[in-house]
Design a protein around this nucleic acid. Structure first.
Lengths: 230, 230
DNA sequence: TAGTGGTCTAGACCACTCA
DNA sequence: GAGTGGTCTAGACCACTAT
């Protein structure tokens, strides 16, 4: 390891902010000055500062220089779990069961969300994910058959829809929403719990090349937690 | 803009994965080959590939080369909200009220979590955050007075504890947990809702230079959602 | 207009790890 | 041992923007 790596510089800059040498909102020296101070190339300083800017700690502007962020917004990176791996990571046996599979016209709310026309039909799926044969998560999903025509022939009994989709349309964009809800009777029954139990819900919509692929809601068993380090 | 920037290469590589040229788990060409193919320096290729590896799309190993990730784990970056900003972003008026402020010995669960000794006392705070004078979130917090001695003199009536802490110990590490729970009577009362209502909970513990600073639970009003793009 | 960050290059050496 | 990614350098030009 060289004595001046972009890692060590990153740490050093962090320390200098921690120590109060540069306070919130302060302008810190230019890349050129820092390069001279640390005795390294500007490129190396640039890399360290960019990394810190990525985490939201620094704000950088051409000509304006680099400032310590006034109100550092804390960011957390979560891994959207793949249920099978999550279950197996806990040493449990994973299994899932397809509860429903129908082609029908989605309700208006779903249609709006997916920007599909009123007469378009979509595939509706309900799946229960089991850990050691006990309910782990209940999944309700709509799949756009126009975008993914092959889905109706997929072996959904052996492979979960999610895994099939990951393998088939692996790279896509989308959004996620986390929320809490009281279990409806249907969800409670699927998860083998009482109605009104607080359920952690992940709502996820996926797009591929500007075309809607799928939207789903995952209702997790009671007590589920999503964890991340800051 | 140069014709070959690391951005354009990043996009190009993405496209080639999308198109199926490189499938899940495939080895992609080495940096040197790609540099030749794109007619740019290896550094530029490196930058593009590192960015893709950061998002979890590629897996890179020295000598092993670069592969398309077998099971791309979706990552979502969330901004841990600052309540005041969140409320004001919705065009509402923010206000908060300190409901309790006591120095006492934390329960065992909290002590364990914070690795403090059984006889150590800590500051306990309860705050209600209001949007247009209606409950938005209820906060219960423990603050380590040894780490942050000045907290007992802080003007907590005018500034929320959170804001005071951000200004005072701005940069720290920590962890976050999201979960759902049925409102206890106390929480329900604070949020002016019925007991058993499903509540979205953010549990957050903060450290500064290996010393525990604070741990808190935020109970959000009914219907709260946390959103992120993938 | 001048100063700052953004980026590319060409070359180099190193660290890791697969065979 | 050899091939791959990880990183640093020195220099260059450019894009943006505060003044």
């Amino acid at each position: 390891m060289r004595s001046v790596s972009h890692h060590s510089i990153r740490r050093s800059i962090l320390d200098r902010i921690h120590s109060g040498e540069w306070a919130l909102g302060d302008l810190i020296p230019s890349e050129a000055s820092l390069a001279e101070e640390y005795g390294c190339a500007r490129t190396t300083i640039n890399r360290a500062l960019q990394a810190l800017a990525d985490t939201g700690l620094l704000v950088r502007k051409r000509k304006g220089g680099t400032r310590v962020c006034q109100m550092p917004v804390r960011q957390a990176k979560f891994e959207i779990p793949i249920i099978r791996e999550q279950v197996e990571a806990n040493g449990s046996h994973y299994r899932h069961q397809l509860l429903a599979k129908k082609v029908k016209t989605p309700p208006a709310a779903i249609r709006t969300r997916l920007s599909i026309s009123p007469e378009t039909r979509a595939l509706y799926l309900e799946t229960i994910h089991l850990a050691d044969d006990r309910p782990y998560a209940f999944e309700r999903r709509w799949v756009n058959m126009l975008a993914i025509p092959k889905v109706s022939e997929a072996p959904l009994e052996s492979l979960s829809v999610n895994e099939w989709l990951v393998k088939t349309v692996p790279f896509s964009s989308g959004d996620v929403t986390f929320s809490a809800m009281n279990a409806t009777k249907k969800v409670a029954k699927a998860l083998d719990t009482k109605a009104e139990t607080a359920i952690f819900v992940i709502d996820r919509t996926t797009w591929f090349q500007d075309e809607f692929v799928t939207t789903m809601k995952l209702y997790y068993m009671r007590g589920y937690q999503l964890y991340s380090r800051l």
